[in-house]
Structures are given as C-alpha cells and as structure tokens.
Amino acid sequence: MLRLNCPWCGPRDETEFHYGGQAHVPFPADPHALDDRQWAEYVFYRDNPKGPFAERWMHATGCRRWFNAVRDTATYQVLATYRLDEPRPDVLSEGGNR
C-alpha cells in the first residue's frame, strides 16, 4: 500500500485517497480552435510513462482536497506531493526494481 503525504493533512495510507490520473492537463485555451484529432488528444490520450509521473490524488476520507504527486510508476516510490498551485517539483527517482 502506498503512503501519500497530503499537503494539508500529512502522511496517510493509500486507502484514504482517490486517484485522478495525469496532472497538469489544462482545458484547451480556445476549445473552438481544436480539430477532431486535437480533441481526441485532450479527451482520450494521457501520458503513460514507466518512471516518474505527475498525477492527481484526492484525499477522499480526509480534507477532500485535490493535490498532485510525482510517483515512479515502476517502483511505486512517491517522490513528492505538492499543492495544485505549485509547479511540478524537479525530483528524480532513486531507482530500485525497475
């Protein structure tokens, strides 16, 4: 089980959280300018890296607020958690069983 450090409540077990997929995917600035392929990219395509991944989590049984994490999808190591108004921190995976 993961342990995530909620920016407001502190470290809690994974079971308290709800997963939200890739972080930093903004709604298109000018939706009317998008063609079908660009809409498909926005609606259906998300990054799926093996390694550090910036993703959203929500503290469902706590403060119920969203935040972001950088987690290594190969080792499941949580490298950082940060508020939505903060930029993605520049963290590197420590390696491990990749």
Partner: peptide, 13 residues
C-alpha cells in the same frame, strides 16, 4: 489497482 503502474504488483487492500 487505481493508479498507473508497471510494477507487476498491487496493494493488499
């Protein structure tokens, strides 16, 4: 398991 993962393992809950 809800999160993206390539680890061939998941959580016990």
């Amino acid at each position: 398991d809800s999160y993206n993962g390539y680890g061939q393992r998941g959580a016990f809950h």
